[in-house]
């Protein structure tokens, strides 16, 4: 009798056990070329007032990410996979960003958008709770600026909430288009950025 109970428990456990890879495939399927739109929200300082911005992005798994904010300001971030980052505010010239934390956050965004399973498995512990995938950094160094990432799937959108020590950033990605390829022209046309941005992305 005991053996039967144990066997049943084992079967039940197996049937509910989902690997980290499976979770990621479900929530963040790995993709190489992607475009889409986003809506980003973050609280103002320690208050509850949410600041909302909208924009578009273009992602190439072997080049990087162009993140174009269109409202309420015009700003473009370029996150190269190699690690370099640039910022263009409005029509101002492109400036390279050198901060370590900027670099880390940019890298994480690149890997999340691309659903890079190898990276995410290596650096995060994963658990599914209430239809939300919770990623917790394994490295305490990363935890100092990023406590967790929560990924929730809704109709045609993915919500990524990055919890920082003092606040959070929530990004809703929608109108996602997984593409077979992405070139410089297509990048520029979709993101509506300057020539230089997409040029730098594809030259890297």
């Amino acid at each position: 009798m005991l053996i039967r109970i144990l066997f049943l428990l084992f079967v039940c456990a197996c049937s509910t056990f989902v690997s980290a890879d499976d979770l990621l495939k479900r929530y963040l399927p790995e993709t190489c070329y992607q475009t889409g739109e986003f809506e980003q929200q973050k609280p103002l300082g320690k208050t509850q007032k949410l600041l909302t911005s909208q924009g578009r992005f273009a992602f190439s798994c072997n080049k990087g990410l162009v993140w174009r904010t269109q409202s309420p300001l015009l700003e473009t971030n370029l996150y190269q996979l190699k690690g370099r980052q640039w910022l263009q505010s409005g029509d101002a010239p492109l400036q390279e960003l050198n901060g370590k934390i900027h670099r880390h956050l940019g890298n994480i965004l690149n890997q999340l958008i691309g659903g890079n399973q190898q990276f995410l498995n290596k650096h995060f512990a994963m658990v599914e709770q209430d239809k939300t995938l919770m990623l917790t950094p394994k490295q305490s160094r990363m935890k100092k600026f990023l406590q967790s990432i929560q990924i929730t799937l809704t109709d045609n959108a993915v919500i990524i909430k990055m919890q920082h020590p003092d606040n959070f950033t929530q990004v809703r990605i929608f109108n996602i288009n997984n593409r077979d390829s992405l070139n410089q022209t297509e990048c520029r046309e979709f993101t509506q950025t300057s020539d230089e941005i997409c040029y730098r992305l594809f030259e890297s």
């Binding site: 980003q40 300082g45 600041l51 911005s53 505010s89 901060g99 950033t169």
Partner: peptide
């Protein structure tokens, strides 16, 4: 533009002041 960038943009990723 600068103020908006500091509130909404990448400059707001690291907040050392209130």
């Amino acid at each position: 533009q600068l103020a908006l960038s500091n509130l909404y943009g990448s400059a707001s990723q690291i907040q050392l002041t209130d």
